[in-house]
Every structure is written in structure tokens, then in C-alpha cells.
Design a protein around this nucleic acid. Structure first.
Length: 475
DNA sequence: TTTTGAGTTGTTCGA
DNA sequence: GTCGAACAACTCAAA
């Protein structure tokens, strides 16, 4: 691993026993897709460590002290987990280790700036992204570690038994199991280079287009620590990539003042996407309950649909059978690939909350079950932003129109046709409005389960209700 | 303490 | 088809 803070710190301290503890409390609820990706990622890591990775299954509070005793370790180095469960668990591990005279070093973090570090002048955390972003940039981050030796040269402790991870059921035999991206550090670096050399140049213009391969697709690699954000940030600061082919490519774009401006803008926007990940981790760090509860609690008093009909709506949404092509395409992409384009995530989330009037947690849970890049902080707060109850949330009247969004961001209909076979016979943007053509429903595509214009008005009415009911008269 | 300016991602309506 | 205004006034950050 070229830039893994915890491993580098351990190497600096002497011979190393690389360990991954499978914590049943996380492994169980993770969802098959992420369990399978993690298994592959650990396989790749084990490969680059010459088979030296030890896997142990169990509660880390018991597993790690046992293992530390077994190999007479003097210190344990971990990548800190900043989630509500992980931070408490890490504290417990630290106490258990110190009882047997072993220190726990939690300096490693999967963020450029550890959650909790960026604060306002008065010491309180930020609740709005843009000021956070400015302070985060000003705070700065360390340069990527230049590890003294390749992973294959690390002095390893051996002679310790390792558990095997069970593959996710169906992952190898079931054709319906999502096609996952290649796992591991090499794959992550390759992906970053490919993105930096191509789509990053027009990220500002292309990132909202689900029909194009215009996003980085690095979320899963960041999630599993296969690449460190500070590696990306350092490359961005140097003009994105040291690769000569990239320099030639960007030199071409940067030939004009206009092109240079566009490049700088694209880098800035990508840097901001990384900062969003860190902002939401920071918010969750300060408000652990916001993983599952309304950050703005007056929204818990809003009227939501429940009961049989709501269950049916949720099922239709989950399976991509709402009759709104862009929504259905997104939900089917999720099931097919364990991933969904960010723009479409917003559209389907807005649809669940504002057209179906369901609580955001239903959608967030489904996403966490099926997303290979599912990250608690980004997922919960992305949903809360859309629902209007989160940090720096969208104004309540901002309700996505699934047809307008589809026509704007999938102008030729390619994205929808790719995921919705029942609409493949419709040409161009017609796929977004099958009701406008005689053969629109000839292949079994369902009719819309709601009327968007009506549900939009209904959503606004419900917001008005909690606004009127709240003591300050505000939402 | 008070005040001022600003805030990811949109839609609809009417000129 | 394109454009600007209205939506509705809040909370946050910083001076």
C-alpha cells in the first residue's frame, strides 16, 4: 500500500502483522454487495502483502488484545472509524489494549482532514458547506506518504493463523448478482489515472450526465481505503497527474485561456466533491444520531404516508417500477451494478420523499443495502439534504421534476434505454415520456404510479403544515 | 452583540 | 424557445 497511514506508521515502528478484523456488528448489516467487495479488496491486499494478511473474525475488543499478546506486539495502528459505532468501538479497543500494556495509535484516518479538526473561530463545528470548504482548504492536509519500501518488502510477523471470509451467497454463481468494479489498490490507482487523463478535464460540464462515463467512480475505492483522498488532492494541486499522456492531453485543453479556466474549474469542483465527503463525516462525527434521525427534528412531525399503499409504493420504487423512466433506470442500475450516478440518486431520492411522501430513512436503508460504495455519513446526509431536513438543506420548494431532469441530463435517452428494456424500442428523448407515443407501453412498461404535479402540491402542503406548527413559525 | 451577506445540485410562470 | 422573477424567509458565518 503506497499511502495507507496506519500501515506506514506500523512499518515505521518495526516488524508488522497486518490484520483485518471482521467485526460481526458491521459485517452482518453491510449488505451482500459490500461484503463481497470487501472480500475481494482484502484478497487484493493479501496479494500485495505476499499472503501476509491475517484475518480474524470477532469483536475487536477481544480479538485485538488476544492477537497482540500472541505476537508480543508493542503497539497497534489503526485507521480510525469516525462513525457513531466505530468511534465508540475504537475507544473500547484502546482501553482493552492499554490494560495489557499495548498502545493503540489511531493517527490513521481515511480523510484528508480528520473529522472534528475543522472548526469555526469559536470552536464549534460548521453547519454550512461553503464556509467549511474554505476552512478545510485553509487547514490543509499532509502530503501522501512516500513509503520507504514497497508492500512486498515489509518485514512481516508470521506464524499466526488466519480466518477465511465466506463469499457472499450467489456472488459467483448468480447472474443477477451485481457486476462489481475491480477491487484493490492497483485498480483504484488505475481508475484515478484513467479519470484524471480524460473525464476530469471536463468534469464541470460532464459530471451531471448519467449517460456518459463522466464521473470518477472512485467512491468505492475511497470507501475501502484503497486510495487516500490526500493522494488525489496532491495530484490535483499539481495539475492532476504526473502521467506524460495526461500532460499532453491537458496541454491541448490548456492551450487557450478559456480552456485553462475550464480545467481549473473542473479541478475545483472535483476537490469540492472530496470535501463534501469530509464535511458529512464531520457533521456525523458531531451529531451521531443524524445517521438515522432527522437533523432538523421538526421534520419528524411532518405527515408521511404509511400502511399498505405506502408499502406498495416503496416496493415499486425499490424494483424500478414507478412508471417514471429516469427513476426506474436509476433504481435498476443500483440493483444491477451496486452503484447509481449521483445526479440520479438525487432524482430518485426526491421522488421517494416528495412524490411518494415516504420518510427518507426508507430510501437510505435501501441504498445502504445495495450500494457498493455505501457510506453512512454521505448516505444519511445526502438523503437528509434532499428531504430538506439536513445540513444546509435544499429549500423546501425545491422539488425535482423527474421528467425535466431526465430531459436535461439524459438528453438522448441513452441512460434510460440502457437500464429499462421495456423502453428500448423508443427513440431519443421519447423514452422519458412513454405516454406521448402510441407504442409507449407495448413492451410492458408500467404507467406512472402517481401524478407528479399533484404530489408536488401535496408535498408543499405538508411542509406548510409543519412550518405553521413550529414555535418560531419557521421550517 | 448586532448586523449583514450568503447559501451544491430546482421549478414554474409569465413576458 | 428563452429569460428573469418568484417561491419564503431561515440559518449560519463572520465582521
Amino acid at each position: 500500500m503506497s499511502d495507507h497511514p496506519a500501515l506506514n506508521a506500523a512499518v515505521a515502528a518495526g516488524a508488522v502483522l497486518p490484520v483485518f478484523v471482521v467485526d460481526p456488528a458491521i459485517w452482518g448489516p453491510s449488505g451482500e454487495v459490500r461484503r463481497e467487495y470487501l472480500r475481494r479488496s482484502l484478497e487484493a491486499l493479501n496479494g500485495s502483502l505476499r499472503g501476509g494478511l491475517t484475518i480474524r473474525t470477532g469483536d475487536p475488543v477481544e480479538v485485538l488484545p488476544t492477537l497482540a499478546r500472541e505476537v508480543a506486539a508493542s503497539s497497534v495502528h489503526i485507521s480510525a472509524d469516525h462513525g457513531p459505532y466505530g468511534s465508540q468501538r475504537d475507544d473500547a479497543v484502546s482501553r482493552a489494549l492499554s490494560d495489557i500494556g499495548v498502545t493503540l495509535d489511531t493517527s490513521g484516518s481515511p480523510y484528508a482532514v480528520s473529522p472534528g479538526r475543522v472548526r469555526k473561530a469559536d470552536g464549534t463545528p460548521y453547519r454550512v458547506f461553503t464556509p467549511f470548504y474554505r476552512a478545510w482548504c485553509a487547514h490543509g492536509w499532509r502530503r501522501p506518504a512516500q513509503s520507504a519500501q514497497p508492500a512486498s518488502d515489509i518485514a512481516l510477523v508470521d506464524g499466526v493463523g488466519s480466518d477465511r471470509l465466506p463469499p457472499a451467497p450467489g456472488s459467483s454463481t448468480d447472474t443477477a448478482f451485481p457486476q462489481l468494479p475491480e477491487a484493490g489498490e492497483d485498480a483504484a490507482l488505475k481508475r484515478w489515472r484513467a479519470f484524471a487523463d480524460d473525464a476530469l478535464g471536463d468534469y464541470a460540464g460532464g459530471r451531471d450526465r448519467p449517460d456518459l462515463a463522466s464521473t470518477s467512480r472512485l467512491s468505492v475505492h475511497l470507501k475501502y481505503g484503497e486510495i487516500h483522498p490526500r493522494t488525489l488532492l496532491a495530484d490535483l494541486a499539481e495539475g492532476a497527474s504526473p502521467d506524460p499522456a495526461h500532460i499532453a492531453h491537458t496541454a491541448h485543453i490548456a492551450h487557450t485561456a478559456d480552456g485553462r479556466e475550464r480545467l481549473a474549474k473542473s479541478y475545483e469542483i472535483f476537490r469540492k466533491e472530496l470535501a463534501w465527503r469530509e464535511f458529512y463525516a464531520d457533521v456525523l462525527h458531531h451529531e451521531p444520531r443524524s445517521a438515522r434521525e432527522y437533523l432538523r427534528e421538526e421534520f419528524s412531525r411532518m405527515q408521511y404516508d404509511t400502511g399498505h399503499e405506502a408499502d406498495q409504493s416503496l416496493k415499486a420504487w425499490q424494483q424500478g417500477l414507478t412508471g417514471f423512466p429516469i427513476v426506474d433506470a436509476g433504481m435498476r442500475q443500483l440493483l444491477r451494478e451496486g452503484w447509481m450516478h449521483n445526479r440520479v440518486r438525487m432524482v430518485v431520492a426526491s421522488f421517494l420523499v416528495k412524490d411518494l411522501h415516504l420518510e427518507w430513512q426508507h430510501g437510505a436503508r435501501w441504498f445502504m443495502r445495495h450500494l457498493v460504495d455505501g457510506d453512512l455519513a454521505s448516505n444519511s446526509h445526502g438523503w437528509q439534504w434532499t428531504a430538506g431536513c439536513g445540513t444546509d438543506a435544499a429549500p423546501y420548494f425545491r422539488i425535482f421534476n423527474p421528467i425535466t431532469q431526465a430531459k436535461r441530463f439524459d438528453p438522448d435517452g441513452d441512460y434510460v434505454r440502457h437500464y429499462v428494456p421495456e423502453l428500448q424500442h423508443l427513440a431519443g428523448a421519447t423514452v422519458h415520456e412513454p405516454w406521448t407515443t402510441a407504442e409507449g407501453y407495448s413492451k410492458g412498461y408500467p404507467e406512472p404510479i402517481v401524478d407528479h404535479a399533484e404530489e408536488r402540491v401535496e408535498a408543499l402542503r405538508r411542509y406548510e403544515e409543519i412550518k405553521a406548527a413550529s414555535p418560531t413559525g419557521s421550517v
